[in-house]
Design a protein around this nucleic acid. Structure first.
Lengths: 168, 168
DNA sequence: TATTGTTATACTCTATAACTATA
DNA sequence: TATAGTTATAGAGTATAACAATA
């Protein structure tokens, strides 16, 4: 499963320099941001899958957990997913009784999506998973460093994506 | 090209709340890190492609730009790419005269890869692209905030990936 | 037998297009 | 005609497996 990617290189007549990234990349904040962000996401996705949840289902539950009843189109737009992609995720969540889809009587094209009690329970579980992974990643940082990191990231995010607006 | 994803939602009898992400996600440093990191990567990839470079070619050039002659296996391992994936990228770079592959006379299985003069020139160009994108993203941050961000990310990266070691 | 580079194949995501039912 | 949800299809990207040359 892990192939040979993380083997200690046993090269011989190349100086036994440790496997190490080019300074140019390590010096780049963009590079670090992408690397750390992606590996965090991968880890979250993996553990979500182990917990029986696929892809972006946590995002959906988290959004619905805020209370509002949402349309599928809105869920997709807010989360930046494709509407067609969302269908499958919702099908699964619905079958498992974590969400409910009801037709909007005022516009029968629309599905109003809400979280069930069971869905809320699962959300708590998934939230804990994310929190645990986040803590493990940010372990080398002190409390105020974490706060500062979050603050800085939020400002950067806001300046490039209008969907963060309210949180500023 | 942009589909309808960024349309202002014209929903009517749903309160005209602006499209906005769940607070739970916005409050999560892991989420922000992944979001910002990925959108930065996407932007870099896009602009690289516009400049005629595909995928991870910048990484390869940057690595070779540090001076050392590297084996294909080492390039792949350092950059975290699949060895088979690397072949195509190198083929392209070689055809365009930006790198050179020579058989290692001491071990004829190996290809020693080096950067050509032209490759160095292109590297300078790509470096500028990344720098420009990074600056645009980090624009809301002051000088010392950027430094602090880089420092914090580096520490996090180091604690989860041995390939950063030297840079600590 | 193990390893390097290579080629071929399969699989997962995501993006696109087409279809229905409603408006 | 346009939109919401759905289904089907295609493409990109990645991972896996098999292979030839060399050690």
């Amino acid at each position: 499963m892990m192939s040979t990617k993380s083997d200690i290189p046993s090269q011989t007549h190349i100086p036994p320099q440790t496997l190490c990234l080019p300074q140019e990349l390590v010096a780049s904040t963009a590079f670090l941001l992408a690397r750390v962000g992606i590996s965090m996401k991968v880890r979250v996705m993996d553990e979500m899958e182990s917990a029986g949840f696929a892809g972006y289902q946590y995002g959906v539950l988290a959004l619905l957990g805020e209370g509002a009843t949402e349309t599928q189109a809105r869920i997709a737009d807010v989360l930046g997913l494709d509407r067609s992609q969302l269908v499958g995720e919702l099908d699964d969540l619905e079958e498992r009784g974590l969400i409910e889809r009801r037709r909007d009587p005022n516009d029968r094209r629309r599905h109003m999506v809400t979280l069930t009690t069971d869905g809320k329970r699962q959300l708590v579980k998934l939230r804990a998973i994310v929190k645990r992974i986040e803590d493990s990643f940010l372990e080398p940082l002190g409390e105020d460093e974490r706060k500062q990191l979050h603050d800085v990231l939020l400002r950067v995010a806001c300046s490039h994506d209008g969907r963060y607006k309210r949180a500023v």
